[in-house]
Design a protein around this nucleic acid. Structure first.
Lengths: 201, 201, 201, 201
DNA sequence: TATGAATGAGTCTTCATTCAT
DNA sequence: CATGAATGAAGACTCATTCAT
């Protein structure tokens, strides 16, 4: 990467970092471009040099947020072990990630708000969840073929697992004190696994 | 109720109906007061007569949206039957409600966005979920005491059930075609129930 | 006209009057909306209530400016007399009008600037000159048929007459002291008339 | 001229060529310095190295545009022949020039727009027309003294001739299809000449 | 109660110009 | 001489809210 491209990347990161903070705190609409300017340490002109509008920044953030999330998926793909072990790895990674992600969670929900209104957002987020679902479904299929799991529908089960974590995350976001992630990290998974695990006969 | 009060109630409903539609379609910020005025068929002056600000309408909507939701909870409280039967009633009611609620779902997520930024929203939504959790926990306790269920933690299990439904709802909102509620209505519950059901020994 | 419509007309006139002054003094681009606001005595909101943009005001002015000019043409249509008498009436009306119009002349040239860039402007101004040319051509035809004038091309002659006045106006705008309209009022016309008048044989 | 000065001259021409094109297409205000940069093939820094501001470019263009025009006048001064012959030379030169100049005509009108607002523009353009008028007046005086023309006012007649051509040019700019320069090249002049030509007695 | 014209503070965005390299 | 990233003042426009009628 040329020094020039490096500078550009750095500036764009500066701006997205600032935007992430500001948008998370204030929401897309209450956030002022001047707030992002101040937070980024750049000038307004510099901001508009790299992103042509507020909306362009929001869309660039969308990419970054869900790209970051994708990393958990990668962990899963590369993992070895039984299906159950992989699901536990997923669970742990997801929970770790969620905690790290907490300050920016309202940002994520704001993006979700846009799903019905903006094609790009819709497609990006759908792609993210579909990828995820497929990976988990693959693991479950593995579990079925190795007789770890009963013959469940892999797709539906994958949706249930992701849904379970998304839902608990949502509830944790709303009422963190009411939910103890330390305990919940594996408990929900245990319940589901109990449900799909092959019963000895 | 006097005729005057009746008119007032009617007008307020008109406004909230319009606001619900407009906010759902455009979001709190892109929605214009003039849009609500047009949708409601009232005049701008009338709007401001009944609600003193845009924010007041949003807060009134918050009440209405989550009050509506509360009705499912009431169904549960009054129901008879085994714990499992009650959970199935809950499941069916929740799914039915979600479907009806779909056009306004982005509204709900926009409220969630406000959880970290607005005390009233936070408290209202927390109250809603806490109530819900307690009711479900009660049912699970009943199930444990009647030996339907294994000795699980009622609170955690309740959270898991609600989370499961909230999460699947979220995913259905994002990608309706990828999720078949008809099948999912009871499947997720089955999995969880399998997990907590008392094993014959 | 209802009182409401009357108010609207009055407001629009107020705005266009102000815009005419401000645009003439400063040009379309240097003129600030706030200048028009100040000049009009209205508020910025009121301005935008009646015209949705600066450009809308400019286009409304275009209408008004060239509609005003059209009145001279009407004088001609209704006039009686020989062709030459009518042309003299035209001459006098045109000169009188030009003098009145002087402060707003740079406005007219600014519109002309837009002829190649904006369809609406092009069409409006073309229509104006075509109408004018036709009226004059009609008078010249009359002069030919009554043997006042030699057998000239009515269309070309009309263009020459209008062109003559437009050109002298342009030069007067550029260098008023160099041109004495009092003398020039009829002199150019005399020259042209001398050229087309039927020579006694 | 040193190689260094040559380069400077070349660069300045590049810039003015680009500016002429861009300004003609977009107008002084809508044209962006970046457009001129792109059109010129230079860098922004280079542009500002040779011209210290947008306005400086506009003023340099003013010089160039009206200097170019001055060449027609030179043709006249050097010409031999009767007054009428000279006027025909003028006519042909003017028409030829106008056609060449067409793409940049809106530029000329934009300068005229500035006559009332900018001293330098006013003086430059006035000087141009005064020079022109004087040359033509001289020719007409010649024509009077040689008995070609009747005893007309040379100044007024010169104004009329220039005005006639300026006016027809304006109308041609506005509505090229409505005006056939091929025919109009000499026709207007004929009319005027008919008017001022010494009548045989 | 109801109306809708009017208000004006607040925003995003633009773009001529500068200057470190 | 040349580059183009950076600057920031300035301006068009928006829209929640008000208030005379």
């Amino acid at each position: 990467m040329s020094p020039k491209e490096e500078l550009e990347q750095e500036r764009r990161q500066q701006i997205l970092d600032a935007a992430e903070t500001v948008f998370s705190e204030q929401g897309f609409n209450d956030a002022r471009m001047d707030d992002i300017v101040a937070e980024s340490g750049l000038s307004k002109g510099a901001l508009y040099w790299y992103y042509k509008s507020k909306d362009a920044i929001i869309m660039a953030l969308l990419d970054r947020v869900f790209l970051q999330e994708m990393r958990i998926a990668e962990v899963l793909i590369d993992a070895d072990g039984t299906a159950e072990e992989k699901l536990r790895i997923f669970s742990r990674a997801a929970v770790a990630d969620i905690r790290h992600f907490k300050p920016f969670m309202s940002l994520a929900y704001e993006f979700i708000t846009l799903v019905t209104r903006r094609k790009e957002v819709r497609e990006k987020i759908r792609g993210y969840y579909r990828t995820y679902t497929q990976i988990l479904a693959g693991i479950i299929e593995q579990g079925i073929s190795t007789d770890e799991f009963a013959t469940v529908d892999p797709h539906k089960t994958a949706l249930a697992i992701i849904g379970l974590y998304e839902g608990i995350t949502l509830m944790w976001f709303i009422d963190p004190e009411n939910i103890d992630w330390d305990e919940l990290t594996e408990a929900p998974l245990d319940m589901l696994l109990d449900g799909i695990r092959k019963k000895e006969s």
